[in-house]
């Protein structure tokens, strides 16, 4: 019998702890596939965050070094400078990257650090119980924005990827989603391209992935996926935000 679906080599046998319908699971899998397909398992090092993906080192069968909350870009900077021929990526949630780690991220991008960041935007602080995140959209209810996010009280959400696209040192920035097979495929291609951008030495690359958190959104899986299409993408439009490689837009 022909095997048509199996666990990527660069994922361990450990089952994920993520909630059903969580975007982290899908994303882990496709990152694993990309690592396999690009034959990177022996030369890639991942930097997991504080967040729901904190245990990513239990799932990826690659070298991984934990960062404290928000400091992934700084840690990866040190690592990449020490090991310029390895592929270094951080994996960070929206709270991690766009609140506590904003400075580290913007500066890594501005320095043109040759690293890749996978930015998982689920609009909430998943790990700590669904509090408001810097990417929580106006009107969205969270445990710390009970009546919905209100700009007068809570301020506006941050479009970090757009900000990073302005940074002179960033090379490739794309926003994708993992709420449908088509979007998942696109995400996978985007991640592969980001790694290629790093391999070719262009500088900072980042893929923002809109990702469902059914648990804290208090929605079913299907509903969560629909909500991304209908509500979230209106605030966080999908597409390539920056590409200095000269490839045609979306050509990958």
């Amino acid at each position: 019998m022909k095997k048509i679906f199996s666990r990527p080599k660069s994922l361990k046998r450990t089952p994920f702890h993520y909630c059903p319908g969580c975007g982290h699971s899908i994303l882990h899998r496709i990152i694993g596939e990309v690592i396999d397909e690009m034959n990177l398992q022996e030369r890639i090092i991942g930097v997991p965050p504080a967040g729901c993906a904190v245990l990513a080192y239990f799932y990826f069968d690659i070298d991984m070094g934990e960062a404290s909350h928000g400091r992934g870009a700084a840690l990866a900077t040190g690592m990449k400078r020490a090991l310029p021929d390895r592929v270094i990526f951080t994996y960070q949630g929206d709270g991690d990257i766009a609140a506590i780690g904003t400075a580290e991220t913007i500066h890594a991008a501005s320095r043109g650090e040759n690293i890749t960041t996978i930015f998982v935007n689920n609009g909430v602080y998943g790990m700590t119980g669904g509090q408001m995140a810097p990417t929580t959209i106006l009107g969205q209810t969270t445990t710390t924005s009970p009546g919905g996010r209100n700009e007068r009280r809570d301020g506006f959400p941050i479009n970090l990827s757009e900000m990073l696209a302005v940074a002179k040192g960033s090379a490739y920035i794309e926003r994708t989603a993992v709420n449908s097979p088509a979007h998942i495929l696109k995400t996978k291609k985007a991640i592969a391209k980001a790694f290629r951008v790093q391999l070719e030495g262009y500088g900072f690359s980042l893929i923002e992935v809109l990702s469902p958190c059914p648990t804290n959104w208090k929605m079913g899986s299907v509903e969560s996926c629909k909500w991304i299409d209908e509500v979230m993408t209106a605030h966080f439009p999908l597409g390539v935000l920056k590409d200095i490689t000269g490839d045609k837009k979306d050509a990958h």
Partner: peptide
């Protein structure tokens, strides 16, 4: 904050 974490990264790398 960033500099000490850069130290961590370089140290992890040996």
């Amino acid at each position: 904050v960033a500099s000490i974490h850069m130290v961590i990264g370089a140290s992890m790398a040996g």
